[in-house]
Design a binder for these strands. Structure first.
Lengths: 326, 326
DNA sequence: TTGAAAGCGGTACCAC
DNA sequence: GTGGTACCGCTTTCAA
């Protein structure tokens, strides 16, 4: 069996209460006793059972994290950020991957909610109403999604899209395709919204929706070519890479015949050839910010206004975009 | 507050004990009562607090998972497998990313051990002795590492390497470089061991060690070229992709001037151009198997012999390998 | 078949 | 400054 507070108490010759105090409110106990208790705790290898503690304090020291698909490198990056920040604050992380299944999300949240102090929902796919009922029961922070009254971390999408489109128009492109991601993804809706707001400069062809994966891009590539555009923006980097791949297979030169632009800036984007021009979205940073907001929410639960963090995006110009073909 | 067993008991007009029984040992309670309890549990939205339950049963329903770096796509795949299998068995998963820091591993394990029934250690970097002391306290299953008396899931490395080398020798290569990964990685030691056992057919040039990342490959590329080999095996796909990248930058044709072969078969390997020949190692499958072994270990802790699962590997021949240059 | 009581490992509160 | 006691939410005897 593991060593419990009683073991420490017995060995140190004090009561359990004193052990607790010595360890968590040191100033309340006589320096001499405190030291003795602490030393025995160390020698015995005592670590308080957080589950038991949580039972009475109402604080578990754990946070939950839901992501749609670890197969998309975007999410592991966010997870890394969450992990890092959580550990700094001495929190442990429950992770759940929903496999892009919107209906599974709520169940997982409820399953987790008892064991965590709060949950970071990254790019949740569930509908707004469902999200809202969930938020009533559990402290939640959203990453990559925004909804009234819920703390959230999001990229500056309008600006991100402006950077992307400005880049393309500066290169002479006027007729541009957008390969849309999942309808249920808030990020997709936002990208589309930002994009549509920019149609005074460009003619926009919408294609999709596709799954936010390499295969989705491959699947959309031929439609893009048929649409007679000179540039295409993929929902994310994976989609853009799928486009790139299929274009190459069909002998279409990038950026000679068509320019390709992605979103996210996953590590992969810089590794391929031609390398992928993309808008870098905050990932680890978003994860860290999500945890920050959650901790803040736990500390002061009744702020009137939900914290909202918008993180900047940065266009990374690489090899997959170039001037309009003559 | 969340709904507790007492709420259910009160509303259903029974005692807490009966609620427990109705829910976990249904055959012990009168069908009528049972139904009533169950219905009220559902209407109230009652879910037992697993932490509280764990306190008394000694079972938390959670498992821990440690990985060295989520930035390497190999690990998210393993995580997905662990997740999937764990959820099937109604377990939740604590995840920790150690950032390739071997010294952090033990601490994380201990931090987690109280809250989980067992831990899956994926590619742990810590030394054998440390691992052994850890195993004494907590049920542990190893993925991608083997050590006496501890259940483990590993790829069939000797065979994996045999496939790789056979492929290269069939193409005429005789002088082959291996870019080694972290010394602390068991996988690296095994690959090296398997490789050295094959030197009757080939001349082996060892280069490295490098971090198991894209940058590691980039960094090793020039040494590889200086070594005057016709083929190079990277520690893993990321390293191989780094090699590919640097070769391209230096105008070295792949596979025209040199063949490149990786390990893992991360999704990325098929997306680049030239696509990467690699030995596909079990990833999600390994994760699932790891959980299976752990559950088995929890059920029958005192088997005399530790379960050991070896999963087959498969060479994926793609564009980055070709015949020896004439 | 059911309920009461004890206890899992801690912490909070109240005496002393 | 320290100890005793109750209690967090749940399961498990033990009796009835």
């Amino acid at each position: 069996m593991a060593v419990t507070i009683k073991d420490v108490a017995r060995v140190a010759g004090v009561s359990a209460s004193t052990v607790t105090r010595a360890l968590t409110m040191p100033e309340l106990v006589h320096p001499e006793t405190r030291e003795r208790v602490r030393r025995t705790a160390v020698t015995l290898g005592y670590h308080p059972n957080r589950a038991a503690r949580g039972l009475i304090t109402g604080r578990t020291g754990n946070i939950g994290l839901l992501v749609p698909d670890l197969g998309n490198p975007f999410f592991p990056s966010v997870v890394k950020g969450v992990q890092a920040r959580a550990h700094e604050a001495d929190y442990a992380v429950f992770l759940a991957d929903t496999d892009e299944d919107a209906t599974a999300e709520a169940g997982l949240v409820r399953r987790l909610s008892k064991q965590v102090d709060g949950i970071v929902l990254c790019s949740p796919r569930m509908p707004d109403e469902e999200l809202r009922t969930l938020v009533a029961d559990t402290p939640v922070v959203l990453v990559n999604r925004r909804i009234a009254k819920v703390p959230s971390v999001t990229p500056e999408f309008p600006d991100a899209m402006r950077q992307a489109v400005s880049h393309l128009t500066a290169l002479g492109h006027r007729r541009i395709a957008y390969v849309a991601g999942p309808r249920s993804a808030w990020a997709n809706r936002e990208r589309l919204r930002s994009l549509r707001a920019l149609t005074k400069d460009i003619e926009l062809i919408e294609i999709g929706n596709v799954m936010p994966m390499f295969e989705g891009g491959v699947a959309a590539a031929d439609q893009v070519l048929a649409a007679d555009v000179t540039a295409v923006i993929g929902y994310n980097d994976l989609v853009a890479l799928g486009l790139l791949n299929r274009f190459m297979a069909r002998g279409v030169a990038v950026p000679g015949d068509i320019s390709v632009l992605g979103f996210d800036d996953i590590a992969l984007a810089a590794m391929v050839h031609p390398s992928l021009t993309t808008v870098a979205l905050p990932k680890e940073q978003a994860g860290r910010a999500g945890v920050d907001l959650l901790l803040q929410l736990l500390t002061e639960p009744d702020r009137s206004t939900a914290a909202r963090r918008e993180l900047p995006a940065q266009l990374m110009v690489r090899g997959s975009t170039g001037p309009t073909p003559a």
